[in-house]
């Protein structure tokens, strides 16, 4: 065990959230709940990135009073990466939900096991 686990409590929370989302993804049979698990994983990644960019005692990267020294602001790159992540997560969620709607219309259930059983029964 390294020395920084308690100092990095934000990143530790991100890791735990990620694992909660992943367990949800593996154990839930309801498709909507699986998608919720995936979104929890996404949020954990944003939290991790935000923690990576933070520097204690520095301001958000918006130039105030014309000060442009590195010592004044936090790292702007993780903020941009979080932005990208949010956009992609929105698109992926919408796509998965619409696929779920189509599956529901076809099989009249959201349970993945029942869908698989019906698929086998139909002989495909």
């Amino acid at each position: 065990m390294g020395p920084n686990l308690l100092v990095n409590y934000g990143e530790a929370v991100a890791a735990i959230l990620f694992c909660i989302g992943f367990t949800n993804l593996l154990l839930q049979t309801n498709l909507i709940k699986k998608i919720i698990g995936l979104n929890i994983m996404d949020s954990a990644i944003y939290l991790f990135l935000a923690e990576k960019g933070y520097i204690a005692g520095r301001a958000a990267p918006i130039v105030t009073n014309g000060v442009t020294s590195v010592e004044a602001y936090i790292n702007p790159i993780p903020s941009g990466l979080v932005l990208t992540g949010i956009v992609v997560s929105v698109s992926v969620s919408a796509l998965m939900l619409s696929l779920t709607i189509r599956l529901y219309l076809r099989y009249h259930t959201l349970n993945l096991d029942e869908i698989a059983a019906q698929l086998k029964k139909e002989g495909r």
Binding site: L5, N8, E11, A12, E51
Partner: peptide
């Protein structure tokens, strides 16, 4: 994570 550099440090390799 326990081996990662401390959160809020200015001399992280990320910066």
């Amino acid at each position: 994570i326990s081996y990662l550099p401390a959160t809020g440090a200015a001399d992280k390799p990320v910066n």
